[in-house]
């Protein structure tokens, strides 16, 4: 349980996918204009990350690795299989959102299916492989990473709603400001960098 918690905290705050690795920037920048849509997309990302990570772990462990059912090293198929899993999960999310919240579905527009190619999702799965997480750790990492992404996008959305009333120089309005903001938020998130939750042996 402690380990689960550590990885969750680490993925959400300390090694935030957006603000420490700058992954998943495209939808992060494009959908963060209002808190409402950012909130919806954030939830979708938590869900997709939380689901695909363990499924991809199972695929990696039982299909692709040498100890899997095929008995040969199939890791060259990793990318295509991971993406396929992610795409189908996103399809699922899309159907659910369309059914239960058409307004959000319309607000998110093309960015909902584009979660498929959100680098944070595939990046998360690849981090999971390279860090050699086990099944429960991969669940924690998926949920934590998703939560961190969610926090980052609703925070920047609230800020962008606020600076809509500011006298920002014309050249910087819109994306320019969003990039500067992301950088400044990255500085603020560095505050937690260096804490090693495991070092205190709880």
């Amino acid at each position: 349980m402690g380990e689960f918690f550590n990885i969750f905290i680490k993925a959400a705050f300390i090694e935030n996918l957006v603000l420490a690795y700058f992954l998943g920037m495209c939808s992060y920048l494009a959908v963060s204009k209002t808190v409402k849509t950012a909130f919806g997309l954030g939830l979708a990302v938590i869900f997709v990350l939380g689901i695909t990570m363990p499924i991809n772990w199972l695929i990696q462990e039982y299909l692709l690795s040498e100890t899997g059912v095929f008995g040969t090293d199939l890791t060259f198929l990793r990318f295509i299989l991971f993406i396929a899993v992610i795409a189908s999960m996103v399809q699922l999310v899309e159907m659910v959102v369309e059914k239960f919240s058409p307004a959000l579905y319309n607000a998110l527009g093309i960015f909902l299916p584009l979660i498929t190619v959100n680098c944070a999702i595939l990046g998360g799965s690849l981090f999971m492989v390279s860090r050699e997480y086990n099944f429960s750790e991969s669940v924690a990492f998926g949920l934590g990473g998703g939560f961190g992404w969610f926090l980052a996008i609703i925070a920047i959305a609230a800020i962008r709603e606020k600076i809509r009333y500011s006298n920002v120089p014309p050249a910087l309005r819109g994306l320019g400001m969003a990039f500067i903001l992301t950088g400044l938020m990255g500085i603020a998130f560095m505050s937690l960098l260096g804490i090693d939750p495991a070092a205190f042996g709880n």
Binding site: K162, I163, S166, N167, L184
Partner: peptide, 10 residues
Amino acid sequence: AFGGTGMNIL
């Protein structure tokens, strides 16, 4: 960049 006094976030 944010528009001067009173507009800064940090």
